[in-house]
Design a protein around this nucleic acid. Structure first.
Lengths: 319, 319
DNA sequence: TTGTACGCGTTATCAC
DNA sequence: GTGATAACGCGTACAA
């Protein structure tokens, strides 16, 4: 009995011969260890929680991609994935997750910051990994794309193609990734010795509509190109450009961020910086498990982003 | 000890006075029953599984809406919601869900049919509720909107507004809901004594792109109106109409289905039949719990759909 | 290397 | 109405 437990869990101290016999019998009996009993004895549920915040109901492509890849990553490691819905202000629900041992740890998307109940998780002894940085606290474990470098690469791609006067549409002020992307935008300008025209930086909020609205402002200022700090806004700009008979990329080039745009025959393929979703998910899940096991985990893990070429950046350098 | 268990679970056989004292102490100690122990003793995990199939990775608005509402519905009943990702053909993962007692039951979206592993759930002793009908089997418990009636209402709304020549774009053949919506389309015609022109019925697949492509076919046949059997396709039609300078609803009226279109300032508000997501989710969760508890549940529960007026249906009746 | 016995936290079954 | 006590199924020290 004890031998079986050890054998099936891959621990040593079992005669190889006996081990194999145990494995055979287990397979024959289609034996599966009971999760509840295992948890009760071992103290771990092998379930991780995931909270995406309100926003995911609005069906952002970013949220959906994150969800799918995290589900896969968790499944790969035989971990269950439990969805923690936004409970409004009814923190009793959160309270339960914290204290009844249903989950070993929680992955929190930065989209959820602002929903006050997130803080309860971060303040609790429950291991947590944030995907995206927290605006106020730097004592939390974070996994994210390297927003500043990626944004810098995006803008430099525009410079490389001969653009000089580059507009930008930012995300909401509450989002750290937006700040970093803006920092990358400035950094690219510095490197190329080009001054930023503050008038070309428009405040958006990552929504489709805010890109659409920002478009008019920007078009009037006649930039060479626009850096939309996410794809949702980039599409808002594309839409407005169509209506206003502005040719993209003929008149203005456009680069987005996230590469979450569905690349179908219908949609204009926007050039964008790829979110390495699969990698983010894997690192996040793996790190969370490490935390659960009491191991050390780097406080901030930033992943590289690649450029995804679409059809919205024109090469002016030769012209 | 036993009294505490009874008191906290609301069972009778406890002196009211003692019951209150127990409650007080429990609150004071911030006591939360341990889920693993409870499951081990009671045999129920209070976790339900949800599988949406591949498609949800493609981020259909329908899938996202379903996910959000089910998460809420489960949470309301203190049930955990576990996401069961499409494991490809690696059925070992499914096998685990079936045999390790992690979930008490599974909610399966009709979007997932075709992924063979769904059948494993349906064939297993694990209680299951499908959202949307299964194409081949009628021995499964189903919760869904009443597709036929809703589709009939949609088409009759067009009739009521003076349209007579009504085109349709269907979903994929594998989807029962598409068949039923088509049946409703025919039924509406019968009721009004109008013959269906088979040329006006175009096969789509619920994708944005298929609506876009079907649009050209339909525009050429000069219908009064079009019934797109979901909103994704309806938006493909809107997009194509813009490009072709077809005025909606000036030249052609349009009605969709699902009402999953984001109703922002950017998007044309398409008239559509509302999916009662919250109700579907509630009924599904409640029914699943009932099944887990061994109660009887109606084999098919169909919910009503309301018309959501947008700006894509013109009234020709007075003209 | 093997097997025995205990504990995990709760519910359910009984005598009282 | 109350309170011991036995499961529930597994991991794991500890003794053999």
């Amino acid at each position: 009995m004890a031998a079986a437990s050890r054998a099936l869990n891959g621990r040593d101290g079992v005669d190889p011969c006996v081990r194999q016999r145990i494995q055979e019998v287990a397979d024959e009996l289609r034996y599966r260890p009971n999760r509840a009993a295992r948890q009760l004895a071992g103290g771990r549920s092998s379930i991780i929680g995931l909270t995406l915040g309100n926003q995911f109901l609005v069906s952002s492509n970013y949220a959906t991609a994150l969800l799918g890849t995290i589900a896969t990553a968790a499944s790969t490691r035989a971990e269950g994935l439990m969805l923690i819905p936004d409970s409004g202000e009814q923190n009793s629900s959160v309270d339960n997750f914290l204290h009844d041992g249903m989950v070993d740890g929680v992955i929190i998307s930065a989209m959820a910051v602002g929903s006050g109940w997130i803080e309860e998780f971060l303040d609790s002894p429950l291991p947590t990994i944030m995907i995206g940085a927290h605006p106020d606290r730097n004592d939390v474990h974070v996994v994210d794309v390297d927003n500043q470098v990626a944004a810098r690469d995006a803008v430099e791609h525009l410079f490389d193609n001969g653009h000089r006067r580059i507009g930008a549409v930012t995300g909401p002020r509450s989002r750290v990734d937006s700040h970093r992307r803006l920092a990358g935008y400035y950094q690219a300008h510095e490197r190329h010795g080009i001054a930023v025209d503050p008038e070309l930086v428009i405040a958006g909020d990552y929504s489709n509509a805010s890109g659409y609205e920002a478009a008019d402002d920007l078009f009037a200022k006649e930039p060479d190109a626009i850096f939309a700090m996410n794809d949702d806004m980039a599409y808002g700009i594309v839409k407005r450009a169509h209506e206003q008979r502005v040719d993209i990329p003929g008149d203005i080039s456009l680069i987005g961020f996230d590469a979450t745009n569905p690349r179908g025959p219908i949609n204009t393929p926007v050039t964008s910086m790829v979110q390495p979703f699969a990698k983010i998910a894997n690192v996040a899940v793996q790190s969370l498990i490490a935390l659960v096991e009491g191991k050390e985990v780097p406080r901030e893990q930033l992943l590289r982003s690649e450029l995804q070429r679409g059809q919205t950046v024109r090469d002016r350098s030769q012209a």
